[in-house]
């Protein structure tokens, strides 16, 4: 059972506030690119290289953009934003364990999916994989996700945050209305 929205909303708001007060606004989706870069560079170490100026660059145009900002993070994964995402996972794991864990049936698929599309785990996993692909492709095109654009962005009154949220809900609500009739 989720927290009351008043308690949960204030707690979540305080976390977003503390992040910007102490370091910088929260964002997550860039780290998918960083992990891809780390894996790619582990297979082929010519992908990310140091520059003569002491920075980093990459053979990949996306990793090399903004003066090699992403390339530098790939070369030094022990940085704030990457560790942040690992810590998020540890925090969610501890929280889930403390409330007794996620039930066996929920662990393979959420009830709302089961009610609408049946028990096939293969089907659910395939859709979750496809969904992940679309979400991260879109997040990188947009330059941020629900955390960075919608929450952190709208909190800072960023124009981009409002544009992103409009696009996200404009697609998400009709899709969910079509998919989840049994809810």
């Amino acid at each position: 059972m989720a927290l009351n929205w008043k308690t949960g909303g204030i707690l979540l708001g305080v976390v977003f506030f503390l992040a910007v007060a102490l370091v910088k606004p929260i964002g997550v989706s860039t780290q998918f690119v960083i992990l891809d870069g780390i894996l790619w560079n582990a297979v082929d170490n010519s992908v990310v290289t140091a520059t003569e100026e002491g920075g980093y660059t990459s053979t990949n145009a996306y990793l090399a953009r903004s003066n090699g900002k992403y390339a530098a993070s790939v070369a030094n994964p022990f940085n704030y934003s990457f560790v942040f995402v690992l810590a998020m996972m540890a925090g969610a794991f501890a929280s889930a364990m403390a409330r007794g864990g996620v039930g066996a049936s929920e662990r393979s698929m959420p009830q709302v999916w089961r009610d609408n599309f049946g028990d096939s785990t293969l089907k659910r996993y395939a859709v979750a994989f496809a969904g992940g692909f679309i979400v991260l492709y879109g997040a990188r095109l947009a330059g941020g996700c629900t955390s960075g654009h919608m929450m952190s962005g709208m909190m800072q009154t960023a124009v981009s945050g409002y544009i992103f949220a409009a696009g996200a809900f404009l697609a998400a609500i009709p899709t969910a209305l079509m998919l989840f009739k049994e809810a």
Partner: peptide
């Protein structure tokens, strides 16, 4: 990108 993310999110 927001439209894509929204579709995949749903």
């Amino acid at each position: 990108g927001g439209l894509l993310l929204g579709g995949g999110w749903a």
